[in-house]
Design a protein around this nucleic acid. Structure first.
Lengths: 187, 187
DNA sequence: AATATACTATACCGTTCTGTATATAAAAAG
DNA sequence: CTTTTTATATACAGAACGGTATAGTATATT
């Protein structure tokens, strides 16, 4: 509802991606968002709570963008998995791409006991399961295996792009994905 | 020379990997290393200098371990690239594996102007070039293309293992790598 | 015995961090 | 017009941060 809450959430999302999570203080967030700490702490009880919400929203936004792309462009189940990396390329090469939230967060919070690390890990797992479902619907036998391989290519390409913008890694990830998918279909 | 300098370097390496770089203060490093800040700042002029040295040493250690494995186990050039992921698996599944320094560092320092980010990026590029050299010596045509794809699988598998120890991702990365390498050889 | 080197111990600098308390202005609702 | 809500402004607490200054100890060399 509140537009101020969204403003804080969006500002934090942007700052976390461009400066890192630990390097971004709440003072900076409220200054950029044009509000005060009191308001921030009214909506988000702790900084950790804010981080968790940022991660959740980022992932939801990405997933619904991808879902929409797949549903409007691909008819047959086999088309969806084949076109998956086309949309991923579109997303990665978009000027607004700033990286994948859960990949960066898991590096900043390496301890597996940490709630932020755990959420990152869960999001990574859920994305892999999403790919597995696509593979399964395309009647691929080892759907989980293919999904894992594709997710490695995906995370590797995102990592490469985070390190160097315009790396072009996604082009080669696409080729590799095509090879793996074709191999899995003809089995 | 100085054993105390090494002690600080090794302690920092360990703490950075297990707690994150930004989350590890110099006070913690000297406390765990059993020395004082004065000594740390004698050997490393700034925390950033220490971080850069830690990254360099970690990468050197990994590279010389891998070089040694390849040189003692693989004779023909084609064997080296084929066995590459066997050794990477050995490294990733080793109990002492704590992640890849440059992958985590680039996430903690996302700004491309930052010296730490730049070093991470350079190390990633050099590792890719190392794989490309292996591919080239095995007479593979598009050596750079294959190297990029293999590095995506590698970084993806490391990422997966950093998120969840014992993920088993490297098994599937190996399979995918074999497929890509065989495809590139028969061309 | 004097000197250089390596290191420790401790206190401190200024800054930044997350988080809170207080007091006030603005606006919406009764 | 008054009450209640919502947000602001600002100051502060308490701890941690990177980094420095000072004073002193232990050991080895000359």
């Amino acid at each position: 509802m509140s537009t101020l809450r969204d403003k804080i959430l969006n500002t934090a999302t942007d700052l976390f991606q461009t400066r890192g999570i630990n390097s971004t203080g709440v003072d900076t967030i409220v200054a950029v968002a044009g509000t005060t700490k009191m308001t921030l702490y009214k909506y988000f009880h702790t900084k950790e709570g804010l981080i968790l919400e940022v991660l959740n929203k980022s992932q939801q936004d990405f997933q619904s963008w991808l879902d929409n792309k797949l549903n409007t462009n691909s008819k047959a189940p086999a088309d969806k998995i084949k076109q998956l990396f086309d949309f991923i390329e579109e997303w990665i090469t978009s000027p607004s791409f700033l990286g994948m939230g859960f990949i960066k967060a898991s590096a900043e919070f390496p301890n597996e006991e940490n709630p932020i690390h755990q959420l990152s890990s869960k999001q990574s797992r859920e994305f892999r399961q999403f790919i597995s479902k696509l593979a399964s619907e395309a009647n691929i036998k080892d759907a989980d295996g293919l999904a894992l391989q594709l997710s490695l290519l995906f995370e590797g390409a995102v990592q490469a792009e985070q390190m160097k913008r315009g790396s072009g890694a996604i082009k080669y990830a696409k080729k590799a994905a095509k090879l793996l998918i074709d191999g899995a279909i003809n089995q």
